[in-house]
């Protein structure tokens, strides 16, 4: 009885080590240089949550909006696609086309202030530059 318990324990330990090795391996493969680690400081997260996330996340109802940008997917994209997404984000913030007029008419609180747009844009520019350099 004792011996079989010991063997079972050993087998469990071996399995645990094996699983851990696999997890580490998978984690490393996600950071093999194809993706850049993208940091979302609290201030940026708040702006995204309040002004973008309603449409550009799984919560969104518009397929067009989701096809154009899913904030949560950015970290998993390859570097070039991360840069391309950030470039588009900077473009709409510069032109003032997001959130769209129709959305603001319905939900005035969705309007992004000039200060918020500037902060988000600066973050996106800095993040893109870091990926490129």
């Amino acid at each position: 009885m004792k011996a079989s318990l010991k063997i079972a324990g050993l087998i469990l330990i071996v399995i645990a080590l094996f699983v851990r090795a696999k997890v580490v391996e998978r984690h490393e493969s996600l950071n093999d240089g194809k993706q850049a680690v993208i940091e979302f400081p609290a201030e940026i997260k708040t702006i995204i949550d309040n002004k973008c996330y309603g449409c550009h996340s799984i919560k969104g109802e518009s397929d067009d909006a989701k096809a154009a940008l899913m904030w949560d997917s950015i970290p998993s994209y390859e570097k070039a696609k991360q840069v391309a997404r950030l470039d588009k984000i900077i473009e709409v913030l510069t032109e003032g086309t997001m959130p769209p007029k129709e959305v603001i008419e319905k939900w005035p609180e969705a309007k992004i202030s000039e200060a918020e747009a500037r902060v988000l844009k600066t973050w996106a520019e800095k993040t893109a530059d870091e990926i490129l350099n």
Binding site: A80, K81, V83, A84, D87, I90, E125, A128, D129, L132
Partner: peptide, 9 residues
């Protein structure tokens, strides 16, 4: 560079 990558996409 950033604009080029955005435009190519």
């Amino acid at each position: 560079k950033r604009n080029k990558i955005g435009k190519l996409e």
